[in-house]
Design a protein around this nucleic acid. Sequence first.
DNA 1: AGTATAAAGGTCAAAGATGGTCAAAAGGTT
DNA 2: AACCTTTTGACCATCTTTGACCTTTATACT
Lengths: 167, 167
Amino acid sequence: MATLANQIENYIKEQLAASKAGSFDIKRSALAEIFMCAPSQINYVLETRFSTSQGYCVESKRGGGGYIRITRLLVNPNNDLHYLVEEAEGKHVSQQIGEGLIDRLVEEEFLTKREGMLLKGLLSHETLRPTLHIQLPQGYELLIDYDLLRGRLLKSMLVTLLREDFE
Amino acid sequence: MATLANQIENYIKEQLAASKAGSFDIKRSALAEIFMCAPSQINYVLETRFSTSQGYCVESKRGGGGYIRITRLLVNPNNDLHYLVEEAEGKHVSQQIGEGLIDRLVEEEFLTKREGMLLKGLLSHETLRPTLHIQLPQGYELLIDYDLLRGRLLKSMLVTLLREDFE
DNA sequence: AGTATAAAGGTCAAAGATGGTCAAAAGGTT
DNA sequence: AACCTTTTGACCATCTTTGACCTTTATACT
């Protein structure tokens, strides 16, 4: 799937990989011009693929001489996993965000690739989606909050990672 | 008989046979166009001929750049994971039974000890607890079926273990 | 210094592009 | 006729792309 968003994502990741400091500045308008798209497309890519939970920090400045700075964050086991647990508490997590977090933990070697695959399977809509159909009176609807459940599953995963006896 | 469904089934199996990784991506709309049929016909074929119990795993993504991915599962008559997948299908699994199954998979070395710990955390009542948002009229009560959810999670785990691309 | 203007970047909602679901219609079998 | 499988279509959910409008910042001009 070579969507525009994916191409831009790859481009940014390449630049990031090539940079010594794990950080990279660029003008939003320049990026938009390279890919011949609307500038707001860049924001879409940053929101969906470079969020904090996915391990990136995005800063920017407007006005003349404005720019976007993307920084790759490294997970610090002692502080960040705890922070992520807090974050996951009661959080709504979409499938996309959940997979992003898992990919990050795999990249940082907190999880093996196998573990990542197992966990991503568990977080999928296909797995979570319910089969039960309950008869309710007219006008009432049954809503299952998959995103909340996903948040709980992720939290459990993080908590296990933090266990002292986890090797 | 050469029903449309059979032709589509054959086509997919050919593509799968030709693929090195045992996996194959295609656009639902593209497939529907090749066979000049309603897109939902593709889903019918996937449901009736590429289910988990038939040895396949189907994933998909909607929206721009969407696709369907079909992955073959391992067929190894020496292990009984397939049997367990059948078992887990639509099954109610208590926390105790679920943990027992995971322990067994760890003992038989289908899962590492780490993986077992991660998965047991996910199956706990604590994790699965309230995930429903419901508006019910007075006098109606709803009991949440954790055991069914656990069955789904276990099934997903088993299917991942069987994926040909699982390393 | 104060203000106007230009040069960025940000937001949000609508439109476009896919795939999913479900039930009804159509075709075969028994 | 009754039942099962296949095919279709209307409607839904999710991801992407675009564009109109908004905010912030630097600089040039009073």
